[in-house]
Design a protein around this nucleic acid. Structure first.
Lengths: 237, 237
DNA sequence: GATCCTACTTGAACATGTTCAACTCTTGGC
DNA sequence: GCCAAGAGTTGAACATGTTCAAGTAGGATC
């Protein structure tokens, strides 16, 4: 973000409550233009001027609705999240095996995200900054994050998995972190058709599955519970 | 990176072999000016013009030696890596307990990196882009990466750790990945004196230690070896 | 209808990363 | 000493994200 004074300003975007229908439509047009251009040219080559022009508004107007170019990415983000949830709902069917459900969920992610492969790196770069509203850990992305974690709660709940309750309750969040890891790998993976990322999923899911089931073995259970305790304490610290 | 055409260009930086002493000195002056300014004002508020002025050269000249502002960060990167290695050498002393050695190494990282805490996020953002030369997985940072992995090889070799050879040989790289995870957490950790990151280290090291030792238990060993196999296959795919 | 308020809109201006054609200086060969 | 080649240097120009003072339009209040 190139800021004149380097000071983060209050978002000029008006609160939803005071937005008119006209404003809503304009906002949507800008977001749609941005999504189109991101797909056509990637993030860098999509200029704010081009977005404004395609949306049929002035440059300044685009900034009335979106505080920065980065904020235009959020809409994209939300779309992917929704598409993923829908794809998973469709693909899971009546699978009850935990490993199957987990694998399907991750494969759906790769399928849904595939069209964005080429510029996902740029998105990731933007999202990686801790202070960015697009950070997966940020306040602003809490809704998308919660939705994603909810997805993994359904993966667990709809399965035949048997694990201690203490671990089971933390599992959705840990699986979401696992997905973040897969996404990280996917972003760096330049292979055709995401072959390497798909291999990672296909081969790491059984490992994760085994590891989770191992938590019933006495010696391993203690370690797992310590890990859960650590995660909990870091969350509230 | 704001590029006119959006095309990555060949680095204008001349190869070391053809550089004169004068050029070397100028290059060093620019890097030093950049480091100073990064520390004083952070990444965003350090302009290329300010760097050039402080170094006593023209703006264009700065670009003769460094292909982009991001490239100025690499020098910083290398400094941290060297300082870390030195601090570890000093702090390890004659510790032979693996967990102790691992904990000390990670704590040294936090100590060395502490002064950069405030703008580390910006560095991270820059490094996060897969195509960036600053990416920890990039070709350009291979030397720093290898040095860092070497550090963990010494952590393992100087310890009393007993693990199967197949696992031991991959351990340095896996521990480096573990450090990347800690760094990731550290970047996002906004607590005073990096309390949360230090807690993560203090409490996760014993877990990692236990997990590694568990690889001698038959049921776990298989999973661990599958994991190693996966890492290997992804590396060469 | 006049007035005012506020959501909305505009484009010029700004800051800054980056490029480039032109220039100067150093060096090795004669 | 002279010259060519190439390293080193320069600042103006450019592209683009962002800001902002000024404007417009539509509705509420009188």
């Amino acid at each position: 973000m190139t800021t004149l004074a380097g000071v983060t300003k209050a978002a000029p975007t008006p609160p939803e409550s005071t937005r008119s229908e006209k404003g809503e439509a304009t906002r949507a047009a800008i977001a749609a233009a941005a999504q189109d251009l991101f797909m056509e040219r990637g993030y860098d080559k999509t200029t704010m001027r081009a977005v404004a022009e395609r949306a049929g508004v002035s440059l300044g107007n685009a900034y009335y609705y979106f505080a920065s170019k980065e904020h235009l990415v959020q809409a994209f983000y939300d779309t992917v999240q929704r598409d993923h949830a829908a794809a998973v709902d469709q693909a899971l069917g009546d699978a009850t095996d935990f490993a199957d459900r987990l694998r399907i969920t991750l494969e759906c992610w790769i399928d849904v995200a595939a069209p964005m492969r080429d510029f996902a790196g740029k998105f990731f770069k933007v999202a990686a900054e801790p202070t960015s509203p697009l950070s997966p850990f940020s306040e602003e992305s809490a809704p998308a994050r919660e939705a994603s974690i909810g997805l993994y709660r359904r993966v667990v709940d709809g399965s035949d998995l048997k694990v201690p309750a203490t671990i089971r309750s933390e599992l959705p969040e840990l699986l979401w972190l696992y997905q973040m890891g897969v996404v990280l790998f996917w972003v760096y993976d330049r292979s055709d058709d995401n072959k390497r990322a798909r291999t990672l999923v296909r081969r790491s899911v059984p490992l994760v599955d085994k590891l989770i089931r191992l938590t019933r073995v006495p010696g391993v259970k203690g370690v797992a519970e310590d890990a859960i305790g650590l995660v909990r304490s870091l969350r509230t610290l």
